[in-house]
Structures are given as C-alpha cells and as structure tokens.
Design a protein around this nucleic acid. Structure first.
Lengths: 334, 334
DNA sequence: TTGTACGCGTTATCAC
DNA sequence: GTGATAACGCGTACAA
C-alpha cells in the first residue's frame, strides 16, 4: 500500500512524468487523449500529490504557523478557531504551536515554525518585542492578532475605548463606586482597559479610588478573590467592571455566596462576550470583541500579504452588549 | 536574507555537506576540530534545518494531523488544547483541519492531511465509519478521541456510566421527576448517556416518562428551549440532567427567568465539567470528562504508535463532581 | 573519519 | 505538445 507518485502514473499511462505534472497542474496544454488517460490512472491509483515534495520544489510550504499562548482563554481560543476556519479550503493549513506566555518558549516555537518553512505567521497574543521578532522572522509575512504593535500588521480591539464604554455605562446608571478587577497589571490589554476606566471616571468627575482597583489574572478564581478582597477592605461598591468575562463569572459567584443580588445590589460588566456570558444568570452585560472574526480576518489578511497585497492594521471597537447584569444602584451596601 | 543551507555551511567550513549533516544529527563521529568549526558556522549563519527537505528525504514529516469538528464545544476544544500541549517539544507539530461534522468535508480534510504526509492522525470526534476510514488511511497510525470505535485505537469516556452516575445522584437525593435534556438524539454520546439515564431510572423502579426527555443540540439556547418546552407541556419536574454543561447553563438561565431557584426548586446536573461549570451560580454539579488529559494522552499514544509501540484503547470513567446545584426536592412545582 | 553520488517527489527549464 | 534533465535541501549508502 505504498504511496503512488507521478512516476507511477507516468509508467502506467505511458508518458513522462513531466506530462503528468502538466495535467495535474494544468500548467500547459496536453493532448486530450493522454490527458484523459492520465486522469483515469490518477483516479484508479488513488494518487495524492505529495505536498512535501511540492513544497521543496516550489519553495512554498502552503502552511502557515500559528502561535498561541494557550492561556486557555476563551478569547484566544476563539481567535484560533477563526484562523482554522478562515484558512478553510484555501490549500493552506495551519500549524499550531504554543508559547505559554513565556518569551523563551515563544522564541523556540517560532523557530520551529521557521524550520518548517511556513509561508506566513499568525501571532495570537504573545509578548515578544517587535524588533526581536523582525530579527527572528526577517520579512516573513506576519499578522499579529489581539495585540497592538507599531510598524506591524496587526488586528486588535481598542481596549481603551472598551474600558471607557463599560465604565461609562455604569456611571450613566448612577454608579459612583465602581470596582475594577483588572487582570495582570502589566498586561497591555489591562493597561488600556484601566486607562479607559480612568477616562470615564475623570469625565464624570469621580476621583479614582485605588482601593476599588483589584489585581487579578483573568481567571474566575481571581474574580472570586477580588470580591473577597473588597469585602475585607470594607470597601463599599455598587458595581464591578471585570477585566474579562471569565473574571466576571467568578465575581458573580462570590456575590451570590454573599447573598448580593445582581444587578439589584451590585451591577457587573465584563469584557469579551465569550459564549457563556449571554447565559450567565443574569445574562452578563459586556464589551464584545469579535474574536472569531479577528481570527478569520487574520488568515485572509495573511494570505493577502503572502500574495503581495498590502494590509492596513485594523482595530475593532469593542461593542457594548447590554444584557441584564446592570441596573441603577438601590443603595450602596456595606 | 535567503535561507542558509547545509551546503552554505559546508563551503564556509571547508568540508562536505555530508559532514555537516553528520554533526547536525550526530549520526556518526566527526573530527573534533571540524565539528567545532561547523558548529561555529552554524551559529554564525543562524542556520535552521529545512524540515521540508528533511521530511522528503527521510519519509517522515514530523507532523501529525488533527481533525476537529469545530463544534465550538468546550469539550472538543479542550481536547485540541491537550493535543497541542501534549506534542509540546517532541519535534512533532500538529496540523489542524476542520470537518464541521460533515462527512464530505471530513473526507476532504483527511485527504489534505494525507497529502501532507502526516506521520499520524488524531481524530477528535467525527462521524466517519471505521471501514471508510481504513480505506482512506490504510495503516497510518491513528488515534480517535472522544468516540468509541471498535477495532481502532481510541480514547473515550464511558458515557453510559456517566449518564447513570448523574441520574443516580439525583435519584439518591429523592428526585423522581428528572428531566433529561439530551443533545442531538442520534449522536452516539447522547445515546449512551440516555442509556445510563434509563438504567438508573430502571434500577430505582422509576418508569421512563418520555415527556421528560427533550431533544437539544448541545447549545445553551437548546437548554433554555428545553425548559420552556417542559413548562409548555405542563410537565412537572424537580431535577434536570443536561447532556452537557453548556446546555445546563441555558437551563439554569431559563429557571432563573421563571424565578425557580437552583437547587431549592430544581436541581441540575451537567456533563463535561467545562471550565465555567465551577463558577455557575450556584456551582454546577456535573460529570467530569478529563478532556485535556485525553488530548495529551492521544498525542503521546500516537507517538507511541508511530514508534511501533502497542496501544490499548482506553476509556475514562466520568467523575462525579459534586458541587451545589443538587439538593433534595422541596416540593414539585407546576 | 571523510567525501561522492544518489534518492526522496515535484516543479521548472530546456531542447526537440 | 512532449520528454529528458536539473533543481529544491537533506540523509545516507558506498567507497576511499
């Protein structure tokens, strides 16, 4: 059951392998009779062109490398899914590697991709500085998703605006003591969302109260923890803006345990609009990032770059998804 | 900035390319001096071995194909993640393709993988009959995950037992009117979980009430819908067993909208133990499937198969994760 | 220990 | 329109 090659077909059809190659790629005209014969044999033998050999010969591997950070984050996962579907049946296939948010592993992973002669790179999240990246990848077509980096092709969400939108919504509902559970403090997305939070506060003449700002790590556990921290500080609050939906879920659970109702006692806004957000009880008001679309856009943009088309970095505005986790504050508690 | 080859190194280091190849693979001893020189040049030129060429030469592509069904299901996603991490830095990289639960697309996707001369296959879910699979893949090492197929190497969960465990827990708490929101009725997992449900009922001398069994499609929407169907049927129930956690979330939301408390008025058990289950309010009691572990096991098992090691199909028992969504029924409602 | 020569399966460049 | 023949980059018998 060995793999059949174009040479086998050539023998069987009594032609040279060049002719076989020609009909298979319709690269130049071939006599109809031979053509038919070749096609028939190809079918009969169940020939599958060897992509590896083709890659070597053409200098194009028809693969694109995708670097994820495997944070287990629904957001990044959704982007990855978008990449897979976006590549669909373009002939390109994605190879996934995992950087685990660790620069050293990330470098190794990219090198592995380079060794496979990928035709392009999609970097999903990640921490590598751009100059180091250029050093590593030279002029390999690259799209960065979910991260804003100057002088690169990237696709990202406007996190400042998102943070602003979320906070402003709460302010408009009459909240003034708005806790912010941010993720890892030095994460660029977090910095921006925090900036948006501060901007909205400033605009409403509400002074920033640092004891309303709790660090977290994007997990639900950190959401639970954050509420506990607030309570232990005896910090009163009527609303929570969580760095992402996952965190919001944790916060919602902690509130539930304390018999605080959402939204009557405490309002919550999340970030991402991950699949489960719409089915939280109550459904979570959140800032939607079009993760899957960002993934599909990344792959089509990358294919464009490979073909020499230009690409302008694109930012998406977070979209406020108003559901049921926000209302006017009844009376501040604690 | 063209790619440097072993020939370049050979020229630079004044040796033949075979010698270069030897030190790079330490396939046979080389004089220390030359060895050092070659290594130095390799470093200096930033040489990256061309995996494509190596694949062609050795007949091993060092890639494994992963077929997902991209159902967006947390369960299958987690398996995929497990596959990626399981491959880690083994030198093998995964190529992902998407079958979308459509047999025709699935065949095409597998053919694409075959064309890339993957050294092995990991099938995550999927619908293809085993004989068709053999027809297609011949004796290519293959692991099937999340599906039980005779005469193959597969890794799956015992869904009958899982369904039984979930139902029995509810029965033990005194429930007798237990709704079952099953997924797509003909899905093999669903059939098994349903069997487990019936077994537990039978064991407790509870007659199967068909109007307590609602079809769904594994989505949260279908969970909402199922509760509405039950209500419209005026079917009383004190507990719900959902085909998966995602469905359970929807059910929980529908209950919330009807001011039915969980678990005081209605108990819920899910299936999967996806990440969000532990942070539902209240935390969801569910049957845990070790999805990530199944993924990592799949990759290590596959590498084993490739190296000629045997593999015995492995089933995991679903693990009952008792949390807070189940209690004794107070009084049946409706 | 080292170099030469060939093969892996395809595409591309020649002549005819 | 067609068939040799040389790449593509690497591994590896074989000979030296």
């Amino acid at each position: 059951m060995k793999n059949v090659t174009i040479q086998d077909i050539a023998n069987e059809a009594q032609v040279s392998k060049s002719t076989v190659s020609r009909v298979l790629n319709s690269s130049s005209p071939v006599h109809p009779d031979k053509r038919r014969a070749i096609l028939e044999v190809t079918q009969r033998l169940g020939f599958q062109p060897n992509v590896v050999a083709r890659s070597l010969s053409k200098g194009r591997s028809m693969t694109i490398g995708a670097l994820t950070q495997n944070i287990g984050s629904p957001f990044y996962d959704a982007i990855s899914q978008g990449v897979i579907t976006g590549l669909g049946d373009t002939g390109y296939s994605p190879i996934f590697v995992d950087g685990r948010w660790q620069p050293k592993i990330e470098v190794g992973a990219i090198k592995a991709l380079l060794g496979r002669r990928v035709d392009g790179l999609i970097l999903i999240g990640g921490t590598m500085p751009v100059d180091e990246l250029n050093e590593l990848c030279g002029d390999l077509p690259t799209i960065i998703v979910g991260r804003q980096v100057a002088n690169t092709h990237c696709i990202y969400t406007d996190n400042i605006d998102g943070g602003y939108l979320a906070t402003k919504l709460l302010i408009e509902h009459g909240h003034r003591e708005i806790a912010f559970i941010r993720g890892i403090a030095h994460h660029p997305d977090v910095i921006d969302r925090f900036q948006g939070y501060k901007n909205a506060l400033h605009e409403a003449d509400i002074e920033l109260n640092k004891s309303l700002v709790i660090d977290g790590d994007f997990t639900s556990e950190s959401g639970v923890q954050a509420i506990e921290t607030l309570e232990s500080r005896k910090q009163s609050f009527t609303a929570v803006f969580a760095a992402n939906d996952t965190t919001a879920f944790g916060a919602r659970l902690a509130l539930y345990r304390r018999n605080l109702r959402v939204p009557e006692d405490v309002s919550i806004v999340g970030f991402d609009d991950q699949a489960e957000a719409a089915f939280m009880a109550p459904p979570l008001t959140t800032i939607r990032q079009p993760a899957r679309r960002m993934g599909t856009l990344a792959s089509s943009a990358l294919l464009g770059l490979i073909d020499g088309a230009p690409f302008q970095s694109q930012s998406f505005q977070g979209e406020l998804k108003i559901r049921e986790s926000v209302s006017r504050p009844s009376s501040s508690h604690q």
